[in-house]
């Protein structure tokens, strides 16, 4: 089956920032978490996928088709949620939807109304009176109401309370019950992804860090904590994002670099995605300072 998304060697540079050689792909039926610190280039990548920004070089294919050449037919099957409110804010959502819905061939008004109801959105109040979370929920309702096969979400959970966030996760599972649909979910709050994500793509300062199955990533690393006196040169070299403090150290270690001499001298914990992000970014900063 053809891939939902395929990106090869994508480049885009701005005056003060560049996205370099980004490559990853997403198969149908899965949820991919797209992570990285603020300013890593997540939104830029998403805007490039949506052809809101013009790429400098590289290839982006959606449903196996070039994303610029087949832009119109591709977008029929994409549901998008952006991190900012881009709606006309002096309209109510009912009026806004009247503008948006006719553009989709497969618009499902009943489903849309179902989500509006579920999200408890006021149908006739102006969008400018909405909170950030309400705008996000409205955005979601639109994205989920035209039978899209590819849902792209840029920081959708920012501004949502835990209850709505958990509801959102249920909805996302519902979407991938149909094995043909996939979700790309960018966030710097990785907690939501610890559970739901099948794949994780991690970028930092415009560069790829990795794009792999989540379970595999979580098994590849361990957080270790211990006494500073065990930090020999060889061990230091293996540790990722080492942080020394008054009463010890903490760092991340790739499981393949496991050293039996550490046994019983360190505390070992399985990492979550946030740990992996923090230690990797810290390591990257330390290397940058060193060089």
């Amino acid at each position: 089956m053809e891939k939902i998304l395929e990106i090869n060697n994508l480049n885009k540079s701005f005056q003060d920032f560049a996205l370099k050689d980004i490559s990853f792909s997403l198969e149908p039926g899965y949820i991919m978490g797209f992570i990285g610190p603020n300013g890593a280039g997540k939104s830029t990548t998403i805007k490039l996928i949506m052809n809101l920004l013009k790429k400098d070089s590289g290839e982006i294919k959606i449903f196996g088709k070039d994303h610029v050449r087949y832009e119109k037919e591709i977008k029929e099957d994409i549901g998008f949620v952006y991190d900012q409110n881009h709606f006309y804010d002096n309209l109510s959502i009912t009026d806004m939807t009247k503008i948006l819905a006719p553009f989709y061939k497969k618009w499902d008004q009943a489903r849309y109304l179902h989500y509006i109801e579920q999200f408890e959105l006021p149908k006739h109040r102006l969008i400018k009176e909405f909170s950030k979370g309400m705008v996000m929920k409205y955005s979601l309702a639109v994205a989920l109401s035209h039978q899209a096969r590819f849902i792209i979400m840029d920081e959708p959970t920012a501004g949502l309370d835990p209850i709505i966030r958990s509801e959102l996760l249920d909805i996302l599972y519902e979407i991938i019950q149909d094995e043909t649909a996939s979700i790309l979910f960018s966030t710097h709050i990785t907690k939501d992804l610890d559970k739901i994500a099948d794949y994780i793509t991690f970028i930092n300062r415009g560069n790829m860090v990795f794009s792999r199955p989540k379970d595999e990533i979580l098994e590849s690393y361990r957080v270790v904590k211990g006494d500073k006196n065990i930090l020999t040169g060889a061990i230091r070299k293996k540790l990722i994002g080492l942080k020394e403090h008054g009463v010890g150290f903490e760092a991340m270690l790739a499981t393949k670099d496991w050293d039996n001499s550490l046994q019983e001298r360190v505390l070992i914990e399985p990492p979550n995605l946030e740990d992996i992000m923090i230690y990797t970014v810290r390591e990257d900063r330390q290397n940058k300072i060193d060089s």
Partner: peptide, 17 residues
């Protein structure tokens, strides 16, 4: 596989494995 993933709120890849 997908239903179990949804019920347990875990990744599809995990249930598949």
């Amino acid at each position: 596989i997908r239903n179990l993933a949804k019920d347990l709120q875990i990744s599809v890849i995990t249930t598949k494995r």
